[in-house]
Design a protein around this nucleic acid. Structure first.
Lengths: 191, 191
DNA sequence: CCATTTACGCTACCGTCAGTATCGATACCT
DNA sequence: AGGTATCGATACTGACGGTAGCGTAAATGG
């Protein structure tokens, strides 16, 4: 088997600009917000033609969601009991959202998803699947209850960031996690 | 003193279409979301020329925020202790956001405020003042802590509505209020 | 070397929407 | 009547998301 690379398709291969486009998207949305981060600006920041972006992503929303998924990465689901899994996942999500570029970009995209049905569709199909449903299965809770508590954390973080324009302070994140976990029933356990 | 009416200014008086414009704005934003609710559509639904809207409000964002303030009304701050004031205010806000047209429109506007700095400015100056600061003074808590708990309720409600497209079920609203109040320290007290 | 295939940059373009300008008509006052 | 300010209608500008077409660059196989 010499086909380690699965039979490269003919024609000119794509240049490796995906990383540059992602970086430009993240920083632009981070600095300007979702709406003012126009595709022209992102393309210029990435040193890429606008048409190239639309050849790889069908819309601005799809580009930004892909960029966030790339920056966010998979949520680790570790721990013995429900409370432990919940605790580590919540704290991981909170920490990730608190990172300089990621959180602000996330806030802008979540925001636009509320008023834009098309982007809402992209988000619910591409974001709910990997994270929310994985959490739901790992926790073994009824769907509504799990989604509700995840929303408490994510929604509060993003809303607060949107209103103040800055990430929440660490004390508030810790208080929020503690509040949710105490209501969740079990104690977080060690480590 | 015959000047009960304070010396009406000369010229043709404004027609009383503000109520019709507010109603059209609320229903249009409720049905379509913030972005698809164009000013042309709102004007058509209100039976008013688009130029008339721009003579009374400087921007679409100002119109929608004014419309929401009108629909939302002042938050009642009643009760003896901090916990009682907090409890009644939280439940009142949650109930108001749960109303059919108001909550969905609020979600759309809050959402856009995250990505649109101009609308964020309108919201933070016109919405924070009457509600958040009033609550803060009534509660006598440090600003960050009060704002944080309000954000827990409002942010979670709006985020959940944005992700699912529907208002939260009553059980979740009650659980959220209970969770916040239990963390807040005091017990809510009777009534 | 050459033909083929695909990706890229560039420019021009379309549709939509926020917001502005203008003009004639209308409603109130003195 | 004359003055003043609002209203509706139409037309317009500018920005943005997204598309089309063209010439060119990079890879393949013969």
């Amino acid at each position: 088997m010499t086909s380690a690379t699965p039979a490269r398709p003919p024609g000119r291969p794509r240049s490796g600009v995906n990383a540059a486009v992602f970086a430009a998207t993240l920083s632009t949305v981070h600095e300007l917000g979702y709406a003012p981060a126009t595709v022209d600006r992102i393309a210029a920041a990435a040193g890429v033609a606008k048409t190239t972006i639309y050849r790889r992503w069908p819309s601005k929303g799809a580009l930004v969601v892909d960029c966030l998924l790339d920056a966010f990465g998979p949520v680790p689901l570790e721990g013995a009991g429900r409370a432990e899994v919940m605790s580590s996942a919540l704290r991981w999500i909170a920490a990730k959202i608190g990172e300089p570029g990621v959180g602000d970009a996330f806030a802008g995209v979540f925001s636009d998803a509320v008023s834009d049905p098309a982007l809402r569709e992209i988000l619910s199909t591409r974001l709910q699947d990997p994270y929310r449903i994985a959490l739901q299965e790992a926790l073994g809770e009824p769907e509504d209850r799990v989604l509700f508590f995840i929303d408490v954390v994510v929604g509060t973080l993003l809303h607060r960031m949107g209103m103040t324009g800055e990430p929440m302070v660490e004390a508030d994140v810790a208080a929020l996690a503690e509040m949710v976990l105490s209501y969740f029933g079990d104690d977080p356990g060690p480590a």
